Simulated assay, not measured.
Amino acid sequence: MNPWRLRLLSQLEALGTVRAVAQAANLSPSSVSQQLAVLEAETHTQLLERVGRRVRLTSAGLILARRARVILDHMDGVEAELRGFGEEPSGLVRLGAFQSAIHTMAVPAVSWLAHRYPHLDVELLQLEPHESLLALRGGDADIVITTTDFGELPLGPDLDLVQLATDPILLVVPPGHPGAGRGPVDLAAFADEPWAFDMPQSYMANLALRLCRQSRFEPRVVCRFGNYMMALQHVEAGLSVALLPGLAVDRRYRVATRELATPVTRTITAVIRRGSPPRAAVHVALDALRRNLPSSALGT
């Protein structure tokens, strides 16, 4: 069986449609379909069945897709062992992290690894929480830093979780704002303020909207940014207020932060696939993440 075709099958199980697999693999949908048909011929087994205009995996296809991830991980591990001759962790580790964890957690860990393991290559990917587990299950990442709160992420027995830290959700206001005092704050007091939000359907946009509605108001959203630095700049200019994770509040910006009267924290977790052969490279990367946590996040 061709490993590349196995990866396409694994991605189909994770992403759900041929079109999504094609987009992820930078192929046309017809090319993906052709390669999956070749895989069926190689295995002498029906792996796909058509349902209307879409295809879905048969029972045999599901079994092979899930076994494929283990097979591919094993091949990666063998390649890493050959490269390093068993002397030290080596090979490629793909580390996915959401925006505010990249500069506070991922980059320090990658720098630490680079000094200690010259034969280990770390590919750093920006993956927001709603994207990360799909990438992990589909084989596009080996480790992801994500959040596992609020019941939004599809966890399961195929994943191993390593809790790293906790991070509070804070109200961020301009300097000199009447709400820039001390102590916990009730969000309802900011119902008439202009709000800066993350992009629609993102983790923080959904959470901020939920918290505002729990305080019995609909926020007046005046801007949406997919970058926390832009949101902080907008707040600093006195144009909005925002709800942001503590790790996202860069101290270079002149803003004030307030804790919420009803505290909300997110649990920051490293996740790897369960059942794969142990890879020294993945283990040392996990260790690097735990060694290089920012002091502000050591709430666990």
Rank of each mutant, 00 (worst) to 15 (best):
G138F: 05
R56H: 09
R290M: 11
G179E: 00
L243W: 07
A288G: 01
H130D: 14
S132L: 05
P219E: 01
L155T: 11
F190G: 01
Q34H: 12
L36D: 03
T58Y: 09
E123R: 04
Q34W: 07
L9R: 09
A60E: 15
D73R: 15
V173T: 09
P118F: 06
A248I: 11
H234W: 09
P263D: 03
D250P: 07
E88T: 15
Q233S: 13
A285E: 01
R213D: 00
V55N: 08
P29N: 00
G176M: 04
P29F: 02
D250Y: 11
V110I: 08
G181M: 06
D121I: 05
R94E: 08
I268L: 09
S240F: 05
S295I: 12
V32H: 02
L72K: 07
A285R: 02
T147V: 15
V241I: 13
S296C: 05
M230S: 14
G84Y: 04
Q23E: 14
P219K: 04
F190L: 12
A191K: 07
G138V: 02
P129I: 01
V172K: 01
F225M: 13
L124Q: 02
R5L: 03
T267E: 06
I145S: 06
N292T: 11
V21E: 03
D142N: 04
R54S: 13
G226Q: 05
R266K: 14
P129V: 04
E79L: 14
A141P: 01
G156P: 09
R252D: 05
P29K: 03
R56I: 08
L293W: 05
R251S: 09
E236L: 08
V255G: 00
Q35L: 13
S276V: 15
H130K: 12
L124Y: 00
R258N: 01
F217T: 00
T43F: 03
Q233M: 11
S59R: 15
P174N: 03
A37H: 13
L120H: 03
E42R: 10
A280S: 14
S90Q: 03
R213G: 04
V51W: 07
M105D: 07
R67K: 13
A114S: 14
S296T: 14
I102R: 15
R116L: 02
T265G: 10
L187F: 03
L187Q: 04
A37S: 13
R19I: 07
F150N: 10
L134P: 06
L286W: 01
H119M: 14
V110M: 05
Q11E: 08
D149E: 12
A65C: 04
